[in-house]
Amino acid sequence: MILVTGGAGYIGSHVTRELINQGYKVVVLDNLTTGHRAAVDKRAVFISGDISNRQLLNDLFDQYDITAVMHFAASCLVGESVRHPLKYYENNVGATTQLLHAMIDHGVHRFIFSSSCAIYGIPGQEIITEELPKNPINPYGKSKLMIETILHDAAESNGLSYIALRYFNAAGDHLSAEIGEDHDPETHLIPKILKHLQGASDAIDVLGNDYPTPDGTCIRDYIHVLDLTNAHVLALKYLLSNPVTRMQYNLGNGKGYSVKEVITECERITNVKANVHYAPRRPGDPPFLIASSSRIKQDLGWNPIYSLEDIIRSAWQWHSKHPHGY
């Protein structure tokens, strides 16, 4: 069986569904503080609990024949991490070490980690490769980098085999519109725009229009959640057949879109005009964040197939059918 921590969350729920569709048996562990019980595939075993609960983890590994762990459970709001850094170090780093302890104690050594491009901080170039220096500028990014360091050390001393997947801007929703992105508060650009176009807010705030980009707004790399899902399944298959693996991969489309371009595309697809309000820059936002995903393409044969239009159309379908979320 595959243990998916945080499997009631946005990305974890999509990965859980695809794993089951491909014949894997899945146990989902989630404390439901930000996840949704309704997002968990009914074919999965669901356990409500926290990965910091060592006894719960021991009981889980004793009861189920776990062969690998996919770890999505984390606090993930950059702004909140600045206001409450200890929460992020406790929830992300401390709780993950408990999970790793329990795994290793029970002879489970395959681990796929949900990392982030936030570990790079403000890179000195537009296209980000895995070899760039890691200089996170907020506690969220620092917590992700700390975990990657822990994974490296655990691999050296405890034989852990792992793949860390560094996401760029995850977006879009399942094509069935049965599961999707439902955060409170919502901080991601595309759902914020779509909610505004549904009438949930008076305006969409654009933080800065004076960046050194063609239209003055930040450029980001958006990757469909189903492309992310496919990367996780490929990573799992690789780990299961290659027991000594220590890899880190960027996950992005390799193409950037500005905030203005995303708003324009949302307007075109929904046929609704946005009310755009320009606000000052947010400290620490680099002009460009675009991934080079050539390493995972070469090693695992992964290729993203969904365009920005596909992302927005799938998100609009989800939000249209679920205007108030789950």
Rank of each mutant, 00 (worst) to 15 (best):
Y64V: 08
S293P: 05
T129G: 08
S143P: 02
S143K: 00
A177T: 05
T270G: 00
H71Y: 03
L308Y: 09
I312S: 00
V108S: 02
W302M: 05
F168Y: 01
Y249T: 06
A73L: 07
A73G: 12
H36S: 10
K321P: 05
L226A: 13
N138M: 07
A291T: 11
S114V: 09
G35K: 04
E80M: 01
D285F: 07
G180Y: 02
I112E: 02
Y140N: 00
V93S: 06
E181R: 10
A177N: 13
G172S: 07
A235R: 07
H196R: 12
L239K: 02
A44Q: 10
P214D: 05
C76I: 01
Q317E: 13
P133Y: 11
D59E: 12
S161L: 12
W316Q: 03
H224W: 14
T229F: 03
L57S: 03
P139K: 03
H84I: 06
S114L: 05
H183C: 02
P304Q: 01
N21E: 15
T187P: 00
K42R: 14
S320P: 08
I147A: 00
V93T: 13
M103P: 07
E178M: 12
N275W: 13
V69P: 03
E80S: 09
Y64E: 10
I223S: 02
K192V: 08
E178S: 13
L239F: 07
G107A: 04
E18F: 09
L194G: 03
D210K: 15
T5W: 06
S241K: 14
H109Y: 04
C76M: 05
M146A: 09
H174I: 11
I219G: 08
Q125N: 12
A203S: 15
H232E: 05
T149W: 13
A274W: 09
E181I: 12
Q317T: 06
V69Y: 13
S320L: 04
S176T: 15
Y222D: 02
Q317A: 15
I2N: 10
N91L: 03
V28T: 02
M103Q: 07
T67I: 14
D182H: 09
G208F: 12
Q55F: 13
E148T: 08
R281E: 14
D310T: 06
S176Y: 11
Q198G: 12
H322Y: 11
R110W: 12
V45Y: 06
Y306T: 00
V259P: 00
L145P: 03
H319Y: 11
T96H: 06
Y257V: 11
R268F: 07
F168K: 03
G7Q: 14
F72Y: 01
K195T: 08
V82R: 03
D202K: 15
I305S: 08
E309S: 13
I193M: 08
P286N: 14
G216M: 06
L228S: 02
N230Y: 04
D205C: 12
A177D: 14
C76G: 02
E18V: 11
H324D: 10
Q22K: 15
A279Q: 07
S52H: 09
L189M: 10
I190K: 05
A68E: 05
I193Q: 08
L19D: 05
A8Y: 08
T67F: 09
L165F: 10
G252L: 10
P191D: 07
I147Y: 04
I263Y: 10
L60R: 06
